[in-house]
Amino acid sequence: MSFTVPANLEAEIDELITHYPVKRSASLMLLHALQEHFGHISPEATQWVARKLGLQPINVHELVTFYPMFRQSAPGKYQIKVCRTLSCALGGSHQLHEHFCTKLGLDPHAHGLQTTKDGKFSVEFVECLAGCGMAPVMMCNEDFHEGVSTAKADQILGGCK
């Protein structure tokens, strides 16, 4: 399967590159744009970014492997990120993570990314999401949720169609 970036996305990307006096600076923004569109960063996407910015593929690949937000394989349609760090842990984030995992048939003891068999949900623990005052907090794709009780968690799951 060939890798094609739609024209409107490429136009958006070309505009992003103009934000920087040195093209390489746009790497992270390009990876975000491609991941938002394709769901993950494939080897072809890495090579495309490298070509676009005049870099070697390794210059881009080393970013994909370093920054936790970039994925090399497709996660679920809905990505649930539960904050693991201290304030949220004190506020019940482990129970929340366990609730999601149990409910979705995933291993409640695994901290890393797990995806349901139907590809609909991914659940993972992430580090501090900067919402400590309303613990526990989580993200479902781009939406940030505070003070998530198990009842609220079920509501969030219910809203994922």
Partner: peptide
């Protein structure tokens, strides 16, 4: 993209340079 070390100012600068 999710790395705490980017809050360190010289790490942040490297990150802004695309590294």
């Amino acid at each position: 993209a999710g790395a705490y070390i980017c809050g360190e100012e010289t790490g942040l600068i490297e990150s802004l340079e695309g590294k």
